[in-house]
Design a protein around this nucleic acid. Sequence first.
RNA 1: GGCGCGGUGGCAGAGCGGUUGAAUGCACCGGUCUUGAAAACCGGCGGGCCCGUGAGGGUCUCGUGAGUUCGAAUCUCACCCGCGCCGCCA
Length: 427
Amino acid sequence: MIDIRAVRPDPGVARAALARRGDEAALAQFDRAMELDARRLAVLAEVEQLRAERNEASRVFGQRKQAGEDVGGLQQELGERAATLKSLEEDLREFEALCESHLLAVPNFPHRAAPDGDASANRVVRTWGTPRSFDTPPRPHWELGEALGLFDLARGTKVAGSGFPLFTGPGARLVRGLANFMLDLHTTEHGYTEVQPPLLVNEASARGTGQLPKFQDDLYMAERDALYLLPTSEVPVTNIYRDEILDAAALPIAMTAYTPCFRREAGSHGKDTRGLIRVHQFDKVELVRICRPEDSEAQHALITAQAETVLQRLELPYRVLELAAGDTGFASAHTYDLELWAPGLDTWLEASSASTFTDFQARRANIRYRPTPGAKPEFVHTLNASGVAFPRTIIAILENGQEADGSVRLPAALVPYVGTDRLVPAA
RNA sequence: GGCGCGGUGGCAGAGCGGUUGAAUGCACCGGUCUUGAAAACCGGCGGGCCCGUGAGGGUCUCGUGAGUUCGAAUCUCACCCGCGCCGCCA
């Protein structure tokens, strides 16, 4: 959530910043929120005035009554005034709720470094690794995976529906190996604390990180219990500290979690649905950092580098994209996408998104810290990065590692975790 | 799922419907003392919002929401959460 108090003195500046997203609807939400805020403040002043009078009058009333004076007339007058106040308070609540609902729909301000424009303005800031050349056209991962017995997408569809992959035998082992490899890297070399969060989250949590109210359609919901299946472990992990005031000495906090993620992918049916490119359920190791505001830019560079390390250890060619203002996610101010090269698909696939949310999530989730002991609490900054998402990593491993004989060579870093250096077709 | 008890400030823990934003202790901050530290003593010390350049003033906040009342942390109702016992299940 943006800071409406900071915006109030000069809404034009904020409006210009938001305009960089090229999102007319967002600007409209912003304008409406500012409008409602002004009306809210006018009613608030009136309500507070009446409450002050009421409080004072009640004090006097109590004194007179105790002194044994006749208070009948005064009591009636105060009763009438209480009714006036009550109706005004209802107006106030209405404006507050309306104002907040619009404010919750306003995205974060893009970082000054983010390029202007939409996705076509995304900037490649670096590439790593060199794509192999193939003598014959490289095969897509779904052919390789089925031939190697790694997954059985038809049966996954039978069990749940399309987009719910079933990993089998060596494929399941590969998934488990990836999880252990990534968790070990982040916990032992990058200093993260491993957590296993709840996989369903309540509404407050989903609002805290920005999934609600705007992206309700993207979430699976357990309606009876008003719980949502996590679309990313960013949600439960960031919300661990919701409504808390953190000790400055504890910052930065660095947590990693291995969880499945569930996404309805509403509106993207028929797009990239082949194989493992876009699925409703997938595993991911996530990195979350919580830090002091002045540290967040450096923390962003750090968390991005840590996600890159995963891909480097897996010897997978990738590029780093700095997202343009218009392509940056709702809650994010600045995002780097890590895209893996998939030779079988002849394309780049996003395997990680490393974002700084500045105080946007902290404000929604009310996560603060005391800069010094005894000082006023301030909002922290939150960041996260996939470190990394599994399906597209598996795609890259298969498509980059494929050999002419139909086998797939595994990266050395994975060998101890998967128990073999090569995946071979079943005899 | 049933019955019982309970949710108060960073923590612990008081609180006859009327200066109770809330006793007290701990923690924390500032100071005195000390060569230094500890102890002791003195003072300060929740958060949000609005107005104000500032000093400061106002308002809300005792799980959440509604209600009773001139006035609610205190009374009523609903909901949420926690604990205990029973039932059910692993």
